[in-house]
Amino acid sequence: MITILFNVLFYVLNIYFWIVVIAAIYQTLASFGVIDTRNRVVWMIGDFLYRATEPALRPIRRILPDLGGIDFSPWILCLLIRLVAMPVLARIYAALVLGDVHGLLL
């Protein structure tokens, strides 16, 4: 049962990682005028991506200095997901399922 829970968490983090990447690409394309945000379908996609990623990106944007229109917060969030959240989740899984408590301390 716990293995299924951790697999679901891994998949959710992976899907959220890709949502952040797609949102960053969408914002870049919209800012350069490549996609028409007045189109209803395109606007709905952008609204979904904004609502899905903004709660996680807002604290990162508060910490980062203003870089003149360049937004590095999605890439920092992607790094946090890949380099922090996934390994931490793997260590917790190893500690619970395999009994490797020493892995949590490192």
Rank of each mutant, 00 (worst) to 15 (best):
residue 2 I to E: 07
residue 4 I to Q: 13
residue 9 L to M: 07
residue 10 F to M: 10
residue 10 F to I: 05
residue 11 Y to K: 07
residue 12 V to G: 08
residue 12 V to A: 11
residue 13 L to D: 04
residue 17 F to Q: 04
residue 18 W to C: 07
residue 19 I to H: 14
residue 21 V to C: 15
residue 22 I to Y: 15
residue 24 A to Y: 11
residue 24 A to S: 14
residue 24 A to E: 11
residue 25 I to D: 03
residue 26 Y to G: 00
residue 28 T to G: 11
residue 30 A to C: 11
residue 37 T to D: 06
residue 37 T to G: 04
residue 39 N to I: 09
residue 39 N to W: 13
residue 41 V to F: 15
residue 42 V to C: 07
residue 44 M to K: 09
residue 44 M to R: 08
residue 44 M to N: 11
residue 46 G to H: 12
residue 47 D to F: 05
residue 48 F to M: 10
residue 48 F to T: 08
residue 48 F to E: 13
residue 48 F to P: 03
residue 52 A to D: 11
residue 54 E to S: 13
residue 56 A to I: 04
residue 57 L to D: 03
residue 59 P to V: 02
residue 59 P to T: 06
residue 62 R to I: 03
residue 64 L to W: 05
residue 66 D to L: 05
residue 69 G to Q: 07
residue 70 I to Y: 14
residue 70 I to W: 11
residue 74 P to I: 01
residue 74 P to V: 02
residue 76 I to R: 01
residue 77 L to W: 01
residue 77 L to S: 01
residue 80 L to M: 13
residue 80 L to C: 10
residue 82 R to H: 15
residue 84 V to Q: 02
residue 85 A to E: 10
residue 86 M to R: 13
residue 87 P to S: 08
residue 88 V to M: 12
residue 88 V to D: 08
residue 89 L to W: 02
residue 91 R to L: 02
residue 94 A to F: 00
residue 95 A to G: 12
residue 95 A to H: 00
residue 96 L to C: 01
residue 97 V to G: 08
residue 99 G to T: 03
residue 102 H to Y: 13
residue 105 L to T: 02
residue 106 L to W: 05
